[in-house]
Write a protein that binds this DNA or RNA. Structure first.
Length: 285
DNA sequence: CTTATGACCTGCAAGC
DNA sequence: TGCTTGCAGGTCATAA
């Protein structure tokens, strides 16, 4: 699920359904889901068992839950990860990777991940710029929904890259949370082609782009996120509705909502970029 | 240091 | 029907 709004939907679900509950048992069904926990699955299970899960937090697309013992359980959903709250005894999902049972005997927490690009880990917290973060998240920039997000600094970071603006927007060390969908949507709103050089944008244009990215992610959050299929769901298995509001992503050959021109799809970094040929002319050369 | 490129996985839809 | 190919909301290690 993976961009900021979808991860935030999951974070809220975790906060509501698992915060305050104590882990009774941990079952790792696929070792790859725990590969970022270098001490291994047995250590992961042992150290997590008996801990109470506290606040659920997020930076960009990373998600974590504070543990009563002082560390955190970190999660990244990758391309296809889900956190599901399911009744004990519900049939295992085909791609169930990790199960947490709780001492209260209530619904269990399941990490389900078809492609196993995501995973869980335990992490100690380090302080970065006044914020406590899991060590593995320390290199990720603040996202636009962070109360301490600094738009001026973010604009400077984007313009400081000698690369194309879409690449810069997707660089999680500059601004976090933006992925392929919301990058394309923000570029369309700003009438910019993603191949435009980031360092040639005026400060005002870069600021406008960032404001559009922020706005479109808030709008998506308001609709429960974007989901084209059952892979992208909240902790209760429900889909969001923002796909109806997308202007370009996934709309190849459909009319631009501004000018009616057919939306084009172009290869980009082993996937696709969607844009309007008229509103977002490709840069020369 | 910065920037670009593939690797990592599974499953689905489209085309032959 | 079956095969192949291409594609998917991401990040990371490695190369230049």
């Amino acid at each position: 699920m993976p961009e900021l709004p979808e991860v935030e939907v999951v974070r809220r679900g975790l906060h509501e359904h698992v915060a305050g509950r104590t882990v009774d048992a941990v079952e790792v069904l696929h070792p790859r889901a725990i590969r970022r926990h270098l001490a291994g699955a047995a250590d992961f299970a042992l150290r997590l068992t008996g801990q109470r899960l506290d606040a659920a937090r997020r930076r960009g697309k990373y998600l974590w839950v504070d543990l009563s013992g002082g560390d955190a359980m970190l999660a990244h959903l990758g391309m296809s990860g889900q956190m599901l709250v399911q009744p004990v005894g519900a049939p295992d999902e085909k791609h169930l990777r990790v199960r947490l049972r709780f001492t209260d005997g209530g619904p269990e927490l399941r990490f389900v991940d078809q492609r196993t690009f995501g995973g869980l880990a335990l992490a100690d917290l380090v302080e970065v710029d006044g914020t406590r973060l899991p060590r593995q998240v320390a290199h990720i920039a603040r996202d636009p929904m962070d109360p301490a997000f600094d738009p001026v600094a973010a604009v400077a970071a984007l313009r400081g890259r000698r690369t194309e603006v879409k690449r810069a927007l997707l660089d999680q060390t500059l601004v976090s949370g933006v992925g392929n969908i919301y990058a394309d949507e923000a570029l369309w709103r700003a009438r910019l082609h993603g191949l435009r050089p980031a360092d040639k944008l005026t400060r005002a244009k870069a600021a406008e782009l960032l404001a559009h990215a922020t706005q479109v992610m808030y709008e998506a959050l308001g609709e429960g996120g974007t989901s084209f299929d059952a892979l992208y769901v909240n902790v209760n298995g429900q889909s969001g509705y923002f796909d109806r509001s997308l202007a370009v992503y996934g709309r190849e050959d459909e009319p631009c909502r501004r000018c009616g021109t057919a939306i084009r799809r172009e290869p980009f970094m082993n996937r696709s970029s969607y844009s309007c040929p008229r509103c977002q002319p490709r840069p020369r050369g």
